[in-house]
Design a binder for these strands. Sequence first.
DNA 1: ACCACGATCGTCT
DNA 2: GACGATCGTGGTA
Length: 224
Amino acid sequence: MKSMPSNFSAGELLPLSFYAGSALEAAPRLLGQTLVRETEEGAIRCRIVETESYGGIEDKGSHAYGGRRTARTEIMFGEGGAAYIYLIYGMYHCLNVVTGPRDDPQAVLIRAVEPLTQHDEALMRLHRGSRARRPADLSGGPGKLCRALLIDKSLNGALLHSSTSPLRLEAGAPPAGPAGDSAIIAAPRINIAYAAEYADMPWRFYYRDNPYVSVVDKERGIPY
DNA sequence: ACCACGATCGTCT
DNA sequence: GACGATCGTGGTA
């Protein structure tokens, strides 16, 4: 099955309807789209290159498993299009895109992004300190990309489809270059061994040859 | 009130 | 490959 970022024009805000479907269909569709973060230093734009689907109350890997509706997960129970941001391990934040209708908690974890221009990369490096020696060190990983883009819980609930939001999504394009650069792999999600039978579901999606991807599966990944 | 633990990362061996 | 950092969250009492 071919997946392309969208049928939308590059640079345009993704409409509310983009978020109406399930997390499982949104996860691969989010690859190639542009995440925009407005900071005091200006906008930072980057391409989404790795995602994970966390869908529905039956997914044992999801914070909303079993219908758990708490202060933290509340935003997931809202209509698709909002950002769900939480703190993990007491020191890192993770960014999710909420999808689906109200009262159906689904979200897509953004696991890796790639700066679009040198200007974007420079700002991201600034926020990451001197660590980033390789591309994946800069923004390959959910905690790293939130650091690079200054994303924390103050942005929880941000409307990604709103032109005035400090965090939003625009239609983008797959990486340019050799054919392999836009080849998509589906593989098991990272660090969810506790999810039992859901731990092995191939619900992680990423561009096969992209250097910003956090973890590359040598055996378990399959073409999407 | 108490407590175990996590959709991670950086450092060290 | 192993381990510690660090604290909000959710389950239990």
